[in-house]
Design a protein around this nucleic acid. Structure first.
Lengths: 160, 160
DNA sequence: GAATTTAGTTATGAGCTATAACTGTTTTGA
DNA sequence: TCAAAACAGTTATAGCTCATAACTAAATTC
């Protein structure tokens, strides 16, 4: 066994005092995920939020904008530009709802469907990369904990 | 047992297709944490990032700005305004390093120390709120998973 | 049918992050 | 020794995300 090395006069600086906080660790982890997923989606002309919107419209055809905003927890005004982007690149359509001429029914185009499915494969690869080293059970536990935190945060808000 | 209710023509829209992705769940969880921690720190005149900087300087007195930036994974230019804020409110000092007149040695003031410790108590409460319902073991597992993801993200980057 | 509510939009501002380019100081090495 | 390179901190700037207020047009309420 090696003899103990004499203590450095100037010990290595560290962020140990923050590592016990969930928020600090999550901020750093999320930053990595965001960078990687955006790099992953860039070849498709998508960002994290446009990908999310596209997937939800694929799975909920005919959805209204306000419903999509609610589902994604995005403010309506911000969703407008996101959908502009997806509409202008021909991935989805805004069709006037026949029963309510204020509203739009959202549908993906064939192109949107195809691109969405391809992007999904890429995002699954990204997921696998970022969660490498975690078992299936650990991954499920992670997602469960994240959803619990999301719920805890909602409960703290005003009971709408 | 109740008889099965007939299937709705328009089923409730949902984001199930995204819930399997770690990034989507983390984005939503982190958003809640960020809102809550900022509300928690506002009475102290702090934000998440100024709190983080303050804590690290408390625990690493004499630290250089570039070391702090490295530790917090913040770009140097962005750290400047953060430290301006902490310096102008009298929480820390930038002292010219005697051995290198380019560099500053960072130290917290007595006021910074006191405020930092108070803020820490508030942030611990925030942590407890956000992670309510998770056992100690689950919390440890969560932090472990987040650190793993952070490491996986770093490895994907250029090996500087 | 006037008043209110709702769906989507526009305009705008705040916060966080990243990059390029600059000043002044230290280190390198010819 | 002294010019070139590297380094610490800074300034300026731009992008992305999120939030709010105020608007238009259509539907609903009473």
């Amino acid at each position: 066994m090696a003899a103990p090395r004499p203590r450095l006069v100037q010990p290595e600086p560290n962020d140990d005092g923050l590592r016990g906080h969930v928020g600090y660790n999550m901020k750093r982890a999320f930053h990595m995920i965001q960078m990687d997923v955006n790099a992953t989606l860039a070849p498709f002309g998508l960002r994290m939020v446009t990908f999310s919107a596209l997937v939800v419209v694929i799975e909920n055809p005919g959805l209204r904008q306000s419903q999509l905003a609610e589902l994604l927890a995005i403010e309506r005004p911000n969703l407008v530009v996101i959908l502009d982007e997806l509409e202008q690149t021909g991935l989805l359509t805004r069709d006037r709802a026949p029963d309510d001429r204020r509203a739009y029914a959202l549908h993906v185009t064939a192109k949107g469907m195809a691109l969405g499915e391809e992007a999904r494969i890429a995002v699954n690869d990204h997921d696998a990369r970022m969660t490498a080293g975690l078992s299936d059970a650990e991954l499920a536990q992670l997602i469960g904990a994240l959803r619990r935190i999301e719920r805890n945060g909602k409960e703290g808000r005003s009971p709408t």
